[in-house]
Write a protein that binds this DNA or RNA. Structure first.
Length: 481
DNA sequence: ATGTAC
């Protein structure tokens, strides 16, 4: 049993469990949180899971969680684990079932007063143009050859096909395409599940949200990002749907069967993994990249749907809605970081964690390079979302990573038991937030009280120096599955 | 998160 006294304060808002805590740990466990948050964090298995992650072969510096941490499959959500390239392990559980779940923030040049009377009309138009719900398909049915092109080229393929503009690619993490993707490593079953899911939202915490910039904290960054007070924005949160889920399922099973051969012992079978440089590690990494590309293509297709709906209601050109940025928050990437004073290539697993590279980093788009990359943090349904700017201290503390959202504080089943969906909808409507949703069960699971307070979560990464607050967005219209 | 179980 892990106690609060096992955690030592190492820096402001940063706590560690020493690696001597358990004999199988290779590195300490690091937690970004306030003192008050630590009590809550110990209520589920997330810190025990973090200690388990610290035992992985080749893990570097520390197993890390952000203040939005909660229990996940094997690894905690809100976690970062960097393993030594190329001999350390890669683990599907460290990325998550929804490979390249992520968010993209779209900005308009309209202000609240311009759209107020037509906001519900816009919500209905978006709801109609973007299919949502579990297992739901859409209008685009891809042949296997066409799907393979999407898996190989991601958002870039969509832009080529007319679902967007070159500027969208400039403002997408990794330009919306991981080069090592290999469609041949994605099972037939995974492709079957994905063939009609491009341009669909899915369910759970996925959404499209129309919001308004309520507060600017940092003028310089806001100017670089093109954000201003009262501006209308659209936030899109979704991932790789059934395709990514099947890739994770397939490779977790394969790795569970191979771990013994590699002499890998893990404290929880959900930490199934393989050495990165093994055939299984390489195949999973190529399949994960393909699923990540599918997710980027999906968010690109959804943004296109939003642009069409927007033009129907407000007129103008499709380009009037500009992509601010698109971030992945469930992904593994090969990056170079400084470890013990030396440059080292590592496999950075981010599971419910957002890359937060600071000023000057060549991975940051040219337009934003002077201020750091946009870090987009959606709140829970009906609460504000935040835009932050990556700061260079994230490189020393968290492998260039920040939090990804509010983080659950209630399990889905507990939320369904305790929350009445209809009263949530009424409450939000009363506060001027319209909800257009397909399922009442989904509303209960995603109720604001099922989540932590996003503002306190964001304040921790701001105060720790990982990313700085730029703007706060207040929701006006939420479209869900 | 997810054709919410094989």
């Amino acid at each position: 049993m892990i106690k609060i006294t096992d955690m030592k304060k190492k820096a402001p808002y940063m706590w560690e469990i020493d690696k001597s805590f358990r004999s199988d740990m290779n590195v300490p466990a690091r937690i970004f949180a306030t003192r008050e948050m630590l009590d809550d964090v110990l209520k589920d298995r997330s810190i025990e899971q973090l200690v388990n992650v610290a035992t992985l072969r080749g893990i570097q510096s520390a197993a890390i969680v952000m203040p939005d941490v909660h229990e996940g499959y094997g690894f905690p959500i809100g976690g970062v684990a960097a393993t030594l390239w190329p001999s350390g392990v890669i683990s599907p559980g460290g990325i998550g079932y929804d490979i390249n779940c992520g968010v993209r923030l779209v900005k308009s040049q309209l202000e609240l007063s311009d759209i107020k009377s037509r906001i519900k009309l816009l919500g209905a138009a978006i709801y109609t143009s973007i299919p949502s719900g579990v297992g739901k398909g859409g209008d685009i049915l891809l042949s296997e050859a066409k799907l393979d092109e999407v898996l190989r080229h991601g958002a870039q393929k969509m832009v080529q096909k007319g679902y967007g503009f070159e500027a969208d690619i400039d403002h997408t993490e990794s330009r919306g395409c991981l080069e090592n993707a290999d469609p041949a490593m994605v099972s037939h079953q995974a492709k079957k599940r994905g063939e009609d899911q491009l341009g669909t939202m899915g369910a759970g915490n996925h959404f499209v949200e129309v919001g308004v910039v309520e507060e600017i904290y940092d003028e310089e960054c806001a100017n670089a990002y093109g954000l201003f007070e009262n501006q209308i924005t659209v936030l899109i949160h979704t991932g790789s749907r059934g395709l990514g889920h099947q890739v994770a399922t397939d490779y977790i099973k394969i790795m569970m069967g191979k771990m013994r051969d590699y002499g890998i012992v893990v404290p929880d079978r959900e930490l199934a993994c393989a050495p990165f440089d093994s055939p299984e590690g390489q195949k999973y990494f190529a399949a994960m990249a393909a699923a990540a590309n599918f997710a980027w293509a999906n968010r690109q297709a959804i943004m296109h749907g939003v642009r069409l709906a927007w033009r129907d209601i407000f007129g103008g050109k499709l380009e009037d809605l500009e992509l601010l940025y698109d971030v992945a928050h469930n992904i593994a990437k090969i990056e170079t970081h400084i470890i013990d004073g030396k440059l080292q290539k590592v496999i950075v697993h981010r599971k419910g964690a957002t890359r937060a590279f600071g000023p000057g980093n060549p991975e940051v788009p040219k337009d934003y390079r002077d201020v750091g990359q946009p870090v987009i943090i959606p709140g829970s349904m009906g609460t504000s979302s935040f835009v932050l700017a990556g700061a260079n201290r994230s490189m020393e503390l968290s492998f260039g990573s920040s939090c990804h959202g509010a983080g659950r504080q209630m399990s889905r089943s507990e939320a369904k038991r305790r929350v009445d969906a209809t009263s949530i909808i009424n409450e939000l409507e009363h506060r001027g937030i319209h909800v257009q949703a397909g399922s009442l069960k989904g509303i209960a699971e995603e109720a604001p009280q099922a989540y932590k307070d996003v503002e306190s979560v964001v304040n921790v990464v701001h105060e720790a120096g990982i990313a700085k607050k730029v703007a706060k967005l207040r929701p006006l219209m939420v479209i869900k599955g």
